[in-house]
């Protein structure tokens, strides 16, 4: 199977002759679920607005209406902030597969950024897992990469098309020169 490479620098430490084959984020459904939760907060605002005006009509009178509008405005600002943070956290968590290594860039919080690398020559086993109703019909799941090092498993969680990712990793490992593979398995 032929894989198309991506010709640009995507992460710090990327070598000049290193070819990026895939940039992976979590499946859009994961982000959509978080958006549903965000949507519930929007619904609270809309439903609360109509209920308050219906059952507490005095809220339309001064000075209560200004206080109420102020609270609504602040609530809206925090809704926008929440949406922004949700999108940024989704956007910044990526995994990159190159011809030499797998890079996992994790943003666990706004001020916590972790980059983990696994050289392909240290690969021992790759497993793709699709488990669940939505996972099966939308084709997303987990990919587990077993290494020959201290880290037990490298995990890609809730990624699109996990079987294609598994195949890519194994194909790239097969393309490594034999001396590279033996160097990795020997723990060098």
């Amino acid at each position: 199977m032929r894989w198309t490479s991506i010709q640009k620098t995507l992460f710090p430490g990327q070598q000049e002759n290193e070819t990026v084959y895939m940039v992976i984020r979590q499946h859009w459904f994961v982000f959509a679920l978080k958006m549903v939760v965000w949507g519930l907060f929007v619904a609270i605002l809309l439903v609360g607005d109509s209920m308050l005006k219906k059952y507490f009509p005095q809220i339309s009178l001064s000075p209560y209406v200004q206080v109420y509008n102020l609270i609504k405005g602040v609530y809206l600002m925090f809704l926008m902030l929440g949406l922004f943070m949700l999108w940024v956290m989704y956007y910044l968590n990526i995994q990159i597969i190159t011809n030499e290594r797998i890079v996992d860039i994790t943003q666990t919080s706004l001020i916590s950024h972790t980059i983990s690398e696994l050289h392909l020559n240290r690969l021992q086993d790759v497993t793709a897992e699709v488990r669940g109703f939505f996972e099966t019909f939308l084709d997303f799941g987990n990919v587990y990469v077993q290494t020959a090092g201290e880290t037990t498993r490298f995990e890609f969680t809730k990624v699109s098309n996990p079987t294609a990712i598994e195949k890519l990793i194994l194909d790239l490992y097969d393309q490594l020169p034999p001396e590279e593979k033996s160097k990795g398995q020997a723990g060098e």
């Binding site: 956007y91 943003q107 706004l110 001020i111 950024h113």
Partner: peptide, 16 residues
């Protein structure tokens, strides 16, 4: 709100 907004924008610009 401003502090969280600036933190989020910084993370996006720095690591995006």
């Amino acid at each position: 709100f401003a502090i969280y907004s600036m933190l989020t924008m910084y993370a996006l610009i720095r690591f995006g």
